[in-house]
């Protein structure tokens, strides 16, 4: 089904999603700033602050998918949206932009503040690559869950995907800690962007691009949208 996108309607849908999520996003952002406010105060504060930060990022991503995708089906507002002059591809496009902005804008803000905290406090800068890889992992998990949510109507499967990615956080820490080319630089005063760190980031971004493309492909071939 080839057609040009209905940009004015897509814009309205994006603003609608922003409006509906605004309170939750503000709460998660406030929580992230609170967590970052004490990470540099000492060892236990660092552990507590980073744990809280990760929980909030995971919570924000899962909560957003629940509001933007799952609830739209569960609360039957999807037929209302699809009665508007849009195609399923327009709908997917508006969801992509709204979701990406809703996750990435607060996410990038958190990453930048985290890097600033590392730069201007005694926390070693060597942890920056680890933090960036981890934040990109959250982004990748978010888009895979988003794509599953857009393509599959089962709430159970979406929750399973969310839980699976959350369970992988521990093993990822373990994997990075056991990879000498990464772990040997963690506590150095400068960030080291070697081929291992860059390679992991490239793989993560390739997965993100493939996931989004696959989701659009599936969306455009669906025979029954409601």
């Amino acid at each position: 089904m080839s057609h040009s996108l209905n940009i004015p309607a897509i814009k309205s849908l994006i603003f609608k999603d922003w409006f509906l999520s605004r309170k939750y996003i503000a709460m998660y952002c406030a929580g992230c700033l609170f967590a970052l406010s004490f990470v540099s105060l000492g060892e236990w504060q660092f552990v507590l602050g980073t744990s809280l930060l990760m929980c909030l990022l995971v919570g924000m991503s899962n909560h957003q998918i629940a509001i933007l995708i799952i609830n739209e089906r569960k609360e039957q507002t999807l037929p209302f949206v699809m009665s508007l002059p849009i195609t399923p591809t327009d709908y997917a496009f508006s969801k992509l932009i709204a979701s990406a902005a809703l996750f990435c804008i607060p996410g990038i803000m958190v990453v930048l503040i985290t890097i600033a905290v590392f730069k201007f406090t005694p926390v070693p800068d060597g942890l920056i690559p680890l933090s960036v890889i981890l934040c990109t992992y959250f982004l990748m998990a978010y888009f895979i869950t988003w794509a599953v949510g857009m393509s599959i109507e089962s709430e159970g499967i979406i929750i399973f995907v969310m839980v699976s990615f959350n369970c992988m956080i521990g093993p990822i820490f373990y994997f990075m800690g056991k990879t000498p080319s990464l772990s040997q630089h963690f506590f150095q005063p400068d960030a080291v962007w070697n081929s291992t760190a860059i390679g992991i980031l490239i793989v993560q971004w390739v997965v993100i691009v493939i996931t989004i493309s696959a989701s659009f492909f599936i969306q455009s071939r669906k025979k029954t949208f409601l």
């Binding site: 209905n6 609360e75 507002t77 009665s83 002059p85």
Partner: peptide, 18 residues
Amino acid sequence: QVAAKQNIGYASEDIRLY
């Protein structure tokens, strides 16, 4: 469908508002 739906008003019993 975009051109058609510009001029269609559709309501069904399973439609819910926010």
